[in-house]
């Protein structure tokens, strides 16, 4: 079969469970705390809102190319994938378990606006616990790979969590940032950030921009099989580094240089030109393969 004629299965459109079904080896999915054994969030019930049995996140064991892995998948369609008390605790539990059992990797399918405001304090504290648990799993030698390509992106505290992972694999549709454009527009005005200008939002927070700037390790098509190939390929050549001053010093220098060079810019177009892209305005139109080729040809 010619690959281009094969039916693509959009990651963006899929539910968390469908993403996992296509990401892991067939038949290897074993859920921890499955819906039939779980209760929806009582905090939502108190606010008169229906909950979900899995509280918007699926945690599981599975295999990727026959290697044992753990996976965590947030459901963006349920309350924007936001982190509440149970949701956060499931993630923390899985990351701590990974630090103990040392699977080949944790795949973290992030699709979240951050803290669930209905459980605001519990959500914020849970995200802090997730941050520490990600770093503990990595310090135990377990790579934690963030996969970002859902409708809610990775925002708020979950944007920070994504950047604490070993690497981020993102699709063009994926978005990664701290404050959402709507929040910035509400507080700072439409001149600062017009959240309805989709093209601008993608040039500032979208997958291509994050990949070109090096904030994401890989750019993949909006296709579940492409995320699977990307994760497999990434893990094949990755050894989790021990936490070290040298490593963070290098990160510090790179971030300082970048800030000094680009601090006044307000649009991806400016950054791409400065990175050496000859025709920055063509970037939004490029397909994935052309963009990867473009990035690989940039001066370093």
């Amino acid at each position: 079969m010619i690959p281009s004629l094969a039916a693509r299965h959009s990651w963006f459109e899929a539910t968390a469970r469908a993403r996992l079904a296509g990401l892991l080896d067939a038949g290897s999915f074993t859920e921890i705390l499955p819906p039939a054994d779980s209760q929806p969030s009582p905090h939502l019930a108190l606010l008169d809102l229906p909950g979900a049995f899995d509280d918007g996140v699926v945690v599981c064991h599975g295999q990727l190319e026959k290697k044992p892995i753990f996976a965590i998948a947030q459901e963006g369609q349920f309350m924007g994938g936001a982190v509440g008390e149970i949701h956060g605790a499931k993630i923390v539990g899985m990351l701590r378990r990974a630090a103990q059992e040392k699977p080949a990797a944790v795949l973290f399918l992030i699709d979240s606006g951050g803290v669930r405001l209905h459980e605001a304090n519990a959500g914020l504290i849970a995200i802090s616990e997730i941050m520490r648990a990600v770093l503990d799993a990595r310090a135990a030698g377990v790579p934690v790979i963030a996969l970002v390509g859902g409708s809610c992106g990775a925002f708020g505290g979950m944007g920070i969590v994504a950047k604490l992972c070993s690497a981020i694999i993102i699709s063009e549709e994926g978005r990664l940032a701290l404050s959402g454009p709507e929040v910035i527009e509400t507080v700072a005005g439409v001149e600062e950030f017009d959240s309805k200008d989709r093209a601008l939002v993608w040039r500032v927070t979208g997958g291509k921009h994050r990949y070109l700037m090096g904030d994401c390790a890989m750019l993949v098509e909006d296709d579940i099989a492409a995320f699977r190939r990307g994760a497999t390929e990434f893990l094949a050549s990755w050894t989790e580094p021990a936490p070290s001053v040298a490593h963070l010093r290098a990160g510090q220098q790179a971030l300082e240089h970048r800030l000094a060079a680009y601090a006044s810019y307000r649009d991806g177009l400016q950054v791409w030109a400065a990175l050496g892209v000859a025709e920055p305005e063509s970037v939004p139109l490029l397909d994935r393969d052309s963009l990867v080729a473009l990035k690989e040809g940039l001066p370093t």
Partner: peptide, 10 residues
């Protein structure tokens, strides 16, 4: 063998 779940609370 197993309970079944369908759909998302969205």
């Amino acid at each position: 063998a197993n309970p079944a779940l369908c759909g998302v609370v969205g």
